[in-house]
Design a protein around this nucleic acid. Structure first.
Lengths: 123, 123
DNA sequence: AATCTCCGACTACAGATGTAGTCGATTCGA
DNA sequence: TCGAATCGACTACATCTGTAGTCGGAGATT
């Protein structure tokens, strides 16, 4: 909800918390993906920025904090998708889908899979 | 191509040049959308940043410069779309479609359209 | 109790971004 | 020809972002 943008680095932290929460700062640092080899202070900085952005909350546990996401991944994903679509496709989702479908080399199997999914959706 | 990211403000300039080029800085400023009421110096700053990012080029015309885009809108759109899909959907196309369909961002008509598109691709 | 260790808070700092101002040179209009 | 308008170059500056360091205090260890 909060319209503060979440940066790339911050998103890395959010993904960790979305997968499992609550976690301490140290726990979060331990779960960083391999390509994000950050120091603990860095993780703490990012967590505190996420706190001020109201994207996560923390609860005291002894003298540590346990962090949990405050915003839903689904909501975030929707928000960012909409942002891209607004910026690049005049606000319409279809052109994005069409564009990606054209770009992507989908195998026949992929296509069948998507077709199946769509059929299910069309209820 | 050039992997330098184009910022939001810079994108506004690119859109103007994609629609019509070459243009002088003053021309660009004159074509700003209503919600971007920037001063001429601002436009010039953005143009020069785009120059160093090799996103536009300029050619002297008397004592002015005529600016033209160096990167294709299609390429940019592809790049940014892929970035979104990578960041939020693990690089896979189907989860995006599923997400959009679930959020009801896609109408039944859209879905039929996608199906048609897929059928065509399956050649 | 003295020390060590770990925590959160605060500070740091370079680069990117949004937004604009100044200034010397040039050209155009009178 | 002389001032006015205009141009590009350079400078400015607050905020955000990526990345990390320092420090005082609370707990744990001996």
């Amino acid at each position: 909800m909060s319209s503060e943008r979440i940066s790339d680095a911050e998103l890395t932290i959010m993904e960790i918390l979305w997968e499992r929460a609550p976690l301490t700062a140290t726990d979060v640092a331990a779960r960083l993906p391999d390509d994000r080899d950050w120091s603990l202070p860095t993780v703490k900085t990012l967590l505190s920025r996420l706190l001020t952005k109201a994207a996560v909350e923390h609860r005291a546990d002894g003298r540590r904090f346990l962090y949990s996401p405050l915003i839903d991944r689904e909501d975030y994903v929707s928000h960012e998708s909409k942002r891209l679509v607004d910026r690049l496709f005049g606000g319409r989702f279809m052109p994005l889908v069409a564009h990606l479908a054209e770009q992507e080399k989908l195998s026949d199997a992929d296509i069948s899979e998507i077709e199946r999914l769509l059929r299910e959706m069309k209820s």
